Amino acid sequence: SKICLVCGDEASGCHYGVVTCGSCKVFFKRAVEGQHNYLCAGRNDCIIDKIRRKNCPACRLQKCLQAGMNLGARKS
């Protein structure tokens, strides 16, 4: 099975251009559409994995963007 390129959980498919799990898919959509201005309490290098993905939305969003997630991406 495929793994989420953001948190490493089991992926549910290709979302916004990137193979991700459902949790990261929903997080990314809400983060971008809600125009959240997340700030990292650390050094913008928090570990984002299945267990810690909820700890720092700033670093999670950064990881989504680095993976290439794009709200305008067509479903493939």
Rank of each mutant, 00 (worst) to 15 (best):
V32R: 07
Y16T: 11
C24Y: 01
C59P: 02
A58M: 05
N37F: 03
M69K: 03
H36R: 12
R52Q: 14
K54C: 04
F28Q: 02
D45C: 13
L39Q: 13
H36K: 05
N70I: 12
R43Q: 08
I47C: 15
K54T: 15
Y38E: 06
C59E: 00
S12A: 05
L65Q: 14
A31R: 01
Y16K: 08
A41L: 06
C46Q: 00
C46Y: 01
R53S: 07
G68S: 03
A41Y: 13
L65P: 02
D45F: 04
Y38G: 04
K75P: 14
G34L: 05
C59V: 01
S1Q: 13
I47L: 14
I48R: 05
I47R: 14
G72R: 08
E33G: 15
N37M: 08
K25V: 11
R74K: 14
L39T: 08
G22A: 12
V32W: 03
C64D: 01
C40H: 02
L61R: 04
A41M: 15
C21L: 01
G22Y: 03
N37W: 03
L5F: 11
S1R: 06
N44Y: 10
F27I: 02
F28E: 01
D45Q: 14
C4P: 00
P57W: 11
R74A: 14
Y38F: 11
C21T: 00
C24L: 02
F28K: 00
R52N: 14
G13Y: 03
N55Q: 14
Y38I: 08
C40D: 01
Y16E: 12
V19R: 12
S1M: 09
I48Y: 04
R53G: 10
V26W: 13
V18R: 08
I48C: 03
I47P: 14
C46E: 00
M69Q: 03
G42V: 13
V19T: 06
P57C: 10
I48N: 12
C24A: 00
C4K: 00
N70T: 10
Y38P: 10
P57S: 10
Q66N: 05
V18S: 09
K29H: 13
L5D: 04
E33S: 13
F27R: 00
R30S: 15
S1W: 05
C46S: 00
F28I: 03
F28L: 03
N44S: 12
K63G: 06
I47V: 12
K54L: 06
V6I: 13
V19S: 15
N37Y: 07
N44C: 11
I47E: 11
S12T: 06
Q66T: 09
V19M: 15
A11L: 04
V6L: 02
R43Y: 08
H36E: 13
